[in-house]
């Protein structure tokens, strides 16, 4: 540790998305969305994906920004601040799409647009037509906001106490 009086700093692991907690959250999201929700629809499976998303999504955003920074050859930025912004953005957008109709509609069409290339490709490979862009379904439910505090888990995973700065 550093000399007395120096302020401890916080550093991030190189690849926080590889921590067991976000990996488990990502696996939970995929299994819950594609298997559990169909077999056991209800309150628990309805909230599980929200909680998992709040845990892994800020770290995913950070990973994308990291990769973009490396590709562009940019100098290292304050990753702890970026992670905090990613966590805040995740929480704010989640609250908006769950409570505000225009944001819900924007999300439904936006995600439908992102899903469309995959569907079009599969349809074309199957000999069909690509079809039009459709919207996805999102349940607007204020009680889903119970998932928001779990965004703190992403911060706990991402930020670890490191050596003091010089």
């Amino acid at each position: 540790m550093g000399a007395q009086g120096e302020r401890p700093s916080f550093d991030l692991p190189e690849y926080p998305l590889l921590h067991p907690v976000p990996l488990f959250a990502l696996a939970t999201l995929v299994v819950n969305d594609h298997v559990l929700k169909q077999r056991h629809p209800g309150w628990v499976t309805g909230k599980l994906s929200d909680v998992a998303g709040m845990v892994f999504f800020p770290l995913f955003l950070l990973a994308v920004i990291d990769m973009g920074g490396r590709l562009l050859g940019r100098a290292r930025f304050r990753r702890d601040r970026v992670l905090l912004m990613c966590a805040q953005a995740t929480a704010i957008v989640f609250c908006a799409v769950k409570t505000w109709a225009p944001a819900t509609e924007l999300y439904e069409w936006g995600l439908g647009l992102l899903q469309w290339p995959f569907r079009a490709l599969v349809a074309i490979l199957g000999g069909g037509s690509p079809g039009a862009v459709g919207r996805v379904a999102l349940v607007q439910d204020v009680t889903d906001l119970v998932a928001v505090p779990f965004v703190a888990l992403a911060l706990l995973v991402g930020v670890r106490r490191g050596p003091p700065r010089a």
Partner: peptide, 15 residues
Amino acid sequence: VLIAAVGSIATSPPR
């Protein structure tokens, strides 16, 4: 990162 991207895009069922 790739799995997370696909998982995020595929998170809501189509309508």
